[in-house]
């Protein structure tokens, strides 16, 4: 964020003080700090992961966005880039990783597969988009999105972060913590625990 943007609270600063003080709203500085240090989870799924690596490499260099610190552990990361086809065999692990990430956390669905199943949607082992299980913040279309398209998506994440406020952020609200997403199980097919009653009744209808 440019300094003039940061240094603009919603009320007027007397002209003689403008050079001496920097007044900002708490939200602005909080979101500025957060949006410039989004640490992604080091986690590649498929073809898009290679473009993600390229985005981290010297030509595109996501370090310029403060995002180069890819953490292999979900406990230390803020952003999950779903970079590739989500399969039924993999989704329990993805949900578990998502649950392990601390708030605030964001999810970017990179490419067609992660967004909506992609070209492999019809396959028997493919989940039709990761948003069937975990909430997605930004969708980046493309197969695969070029690194620049991914950077564009990451800027959308930053945009989203900048639009949030401490007052309303869900991770500072009173009450119970956000419920964990139940981890799907593998049976004769993928079993979503949220749909157990539907599965029990489904066939009889």
């Amino acid at each position: 964020m440019e300094s003039n943007e940061l240094n603009s609270p919603d009320y007027e600063i007397p002209p003689e003080l403008q050079a001496q003080v920097a007044i900002t709203s708490l939200d602005k500085i909080y979101n500025w700090g957060r949006s410039a240090s989004v640490w992604p989870l080091m986690f590649g799924l498929a073809c898009c992961a290679i473009e993600m690596i390229c985005a981290a490499a010297s030509r595109f260099d996501i370090a310029r966005f403060g995002m180069e610190i890819m953490r292999p552990s979900p406990r230390q990361s803020d952003l999950m880039i779903i970079s590739g086809t989500v399969t039924k065999k993999m989704i329990p692990i993805i949900v578990r990783l998502y649950n392990q990430m601390p708030e605030p956390k964001y999810v970017l669905a990179m490419g067609a597969c992660a967004s909506g199943g992609g070209p492999f949607k019809e396959g028997y082992n493919v989940v039709s988009g990761v948003d069937k299980f975990i909430p997605v913040d930004v969708y980046v279309p493309g197969c695969p999105p070029t690194p620049q398209a991914l950077l564009n998506g990451l800027m959308k994440i930053q945009e989203k972060i900048k639009g949030e406020s401490i007052k309303t952020a869900r991770w500072y609200q009173k009450g119970p913590d956000m419920a964990e997403i139940p981890v799907p199980m593998l049976g004769p097919d993928l079993i979503d625990p949220r749909k157990i009653t539907l599965i029990q009744n489904g066939k009889k209808n």
Binding site: V138, Y139, V140, P141, G142, T146, A149, N152, M155, K156
Partner: peptide, 10 residues
């Protein structure tokens, strides 16, 4: 045009 990232499905 590759700058198509959005907050919803496409």
């Amino acid at each position: 045009d590759y700058e198509l990232a959005s907050f919803t499905r496409n």
